[in-house]
Amino acid sequence: MIVHQAYKYRIYPNTEQQQLIRQMFGCCRFVFNHFLEEWNQTYAETGKGLSYQPCATQLPVLKTQYDWLKEVDSIALQSAVRHVADSFDRFFKKQNQAPRFKSRKHPVQSYTTKFTNGNIAIEGNRLKLPKLGWMRFANSRKLEGRILSATVRQNASDKYFVSLVCEVEKTPLPQADAHIGIDLGLKEYAVCSSGEHFANPRFYRQYEKKLALWQRRLARRTPGGSNWKKAKKHIACIHEHIANSRKDFLHKMTTKLIRECQTISIEQLRVANMIQNPKLSKSIADASWGEWVRQLTYKASWYGRTLRVAGTFEPTSQQCHVCGMIHPEVKNLSIREWTCVACGTHHDRDENAAHNIKQVAV
């Protein structure tokens, strides 16, 4: 099975390369905003938008008007035009909101270029990128497959990263006999029908006081000053550490489940609705259930596993998985254990829900 997989590495450009990277950020941002404005004007006048082809044919004309566009990677500028067209395609399919103008004040900046004639290459601990040449990078993971594109990104903590998208062939894992149901929660992150429990690490809660301290310091400092910038960078580093810890936990957990189980049953969660609960919203956002489901979905597709989903309105917590009797009083989240009055089975709330998810998922 041929899939597209991204490999993310941290890069260490020198001062000249950093300046050129920032220049490419600005040029790609200018091209994106220019064609977004043209698209909006065309739609307001004619009721129809533009497509990629007419915008791409206008790009050489734009370069003649602004000579500084010729100094950067031409493929990156074409990718910016492509991003305008793709964003409107997703908007009309109701997959996202209407595209907005890019700002140089946004904490994360990026541009994308494509592989042509060996302009992207890896040699030991050195990486070659178009217009930038060779630079040192953290070769933390072996690159596999054929390189298709590269996205250079500067995050809020002023670190530079590159994501290399490659065409990789995935081989299904050997068959496994296990079939489990998984109930996600906040008290414990996941409870399996096999009896295995995964603790909820609550990464945001671990750093919440430290984050609040630095946010108070930021609020007291003069906006735009050197101390204000230091505090802002420190806050960005804390957020980055939280995100990296959470992502590491989710990847290890989903990989373990995919390796050990042939069929995995989960519950369909409407996280966007659940996160509106003012008492639980912060904990639900910290749990990142949507990212967990996303990782489990693509890994199951890659490695030949079956992912089954139970409906949102199935009474998985209230129903006894032994006799099938429904107990509405179990809706109360404070009830962690209960006994079925029909068959007398004593249930752990989450393990019973995991068993029901395993039975009703399709």
Score class of each variant (00 low, 15 high):
Lys282Tyr: 12
Val322Asp: 05
Pro328Phe: 05
His347Ser: 09
Cys323Arg: 03
Trp338Asp: 11
His321Leu: 04
Lys331Tyr: 01
Val322Pro: 05
Gln318Tyr: 06
Ile284Phe: 11
Ala285Ile: 11
Gln318Glu: 09
Thr297Gly: 01
Leu333Ala: 13
Cys343Thr: 02
Pro315Val: 01
Lys299Arg: 10
Asp286Glu: 13
Pro315Asn: 04
Gly290Leu: 03
Val341Ile: 11
Leu307Val: 11
His327Asn: 15
Ser334Lys: 15
Glu291Met: 14
His321Ser: 15
Arg294Ile: 03
Tyr298Met: 06
Phe313Cys: 02
Glu337Trp: 01
His346Cys: 10
Glu291Lys: 11
Lys282Gly: 04
Gln318Val: 00
Gly290His: 09
Ala342Met: 08
Cys343Met: 05
Val341Pro: 14
Val309Trp: 14
Val309Asn: 00
Val309Met: 14
Lys331Ser: 13
Thr339Gln: 15
Asn277His: 12
Gln319Ala: 14
Gln319Asp: 05
Ile335Tyr: 05
Gln319Phe: 00
Arg308Ala: 10
Asn332Gly: 04
Glu314Gly: 00
Lys299Phe: 03
Asn332Lys: 07
Lys282Ile: 02
Phe313Pro: 00
Pro278Leu: 10
Thr316Val: 13
Ile335Lys: 03
Val330Phe: 06
Lys299Gln: 12
Gln318Arg: 08
Leu280Ala: 13
Arg294His: 08
Glu329Ile: 03
Glu291Arg: 03
Ile284Lys: 11
Glu291Thr: 08
Pro328Ala: 11
Ser334Pro: 06
Gly311Met: 06
Phe313Lys: 09
Val330Asp: 05
Asp286Val: 12
Leu280Arg: 11
Gly311Tyr: 06
Arg294Gly: 00
Val293Gln: 08
Gln295Cys: 06
Trp289Ser: 01
Leu307Asp: 01
His321Trp: 13
Val341Phe: 07
Glu314His: 13
Arg305Ile: 00
His327Tyr: 04
Cys340His: 02
Asn277Leu: 11
Lys279Val: 01
Arg336His: 09
Ser334His: 13
Thr306Asn: 09
Ala300Tyr: 01
Ser317Gly: 04
Trp338His: 07
Leu307Ser: 03
Leu280Glu: 05
Thr339Met: 10
Ser288Cys: 14
Lys331Phe: 03
Glu291Ser: 05
Asn332Ala: 10
Trp302Tyr: 13
Gly324Cys: 07
Lys282His: 14
Val293Thr: 12
Ser281Ile: 05
Gln276Trp: 07
Cys340Pro: 04
Gln295Pro: 11
His327Asp: 06
Lys282Ser: 15
Ser334Tyr: 00
Pro278Gln: 11
Ser334Ile: 02
Gly290Lys: 01
Trp292Phe: 15
Gln295Ser: 07
Arg308Phe: 01
His347Trp: 09
Asp286Trp: 04
Ile335Gln: 00
Lys299Met: 10
Gly304Ala: 08
Ser283Asn: 12
Pro328Ser: 09
Ser288Asp: 09
Pro328Tyr: 07
Val341Asp: 10
Val293Asp: 03
Ala300Gln: 02
Thr297Met: 00
Gly344Val: 13
Ile326Ala: 04
Ser334Phe: 02
Ala310Phe: 05
